[in-house]
């Protein structure tokens, strides 16, 4: 499943690097709001869900090669963060759902893809 498949399916909004969304595969999901822990634990290609919108999420996404960063509950993302993400090729996605619901949606979409 690519970032585009997932985002379109859920009706989420891409804030940066939308042109890369159909070329970027999601390999799994990691949810964590401690940046130090995410830095050490997000695996290559994983979708990372965090409430942080600080510019440092871009560095963490680059470091871990996350497929995208999903911000839950329509939390506003600073312009500075979006600009940095665009510059560094990091896809940031904004979702109206909670972190829990984002995970459920990923799981459902993945099961559906697997069966279909």
């Amino acid at each position: 499943m690519t970032v585009k498949d997932f985002v379109q399916h859920c009706g989420y909004r891409i804030l940066s690097c939308a042109d890369r969304a159909d070329k970027t595969e999601i390999t799994g999901v990691y949810v964590c709001d401690l940046l130090s822990m995410a830095m050490a634990r997000v695996k290559d290609g994983e979708l990372w869900v965090t409430v942080h919108t600080n510019i440092n999420i871009v560095a963490v996404a680059c470091l871990t090669n996350a497929s995208c960063v999903v911000i839950p509950e329509n939390i506003e993302v600073e312009e500075q963060t979006v600009n940095k993400a665009a510059e560094k090729g990091v896809i940031i996605v904004q979702s109206p759902h909670t972190s829990y619901e984002i995970c459920i949606n990923y799981h459902l979409k993945k099961s559906e893809s697997g069966n279909g």
Binding site: S36, A40, A59, C62, L63
Partner: peptide, 11 residues
């Protein structure tokens, strides 16, 4: 320290 290696290209 957590001993995460610094990536100069990023940080």
């Amino acid at each position: 320290y957590l001993n995460i290696e610094n990536r100069e290209d990023i940080f």
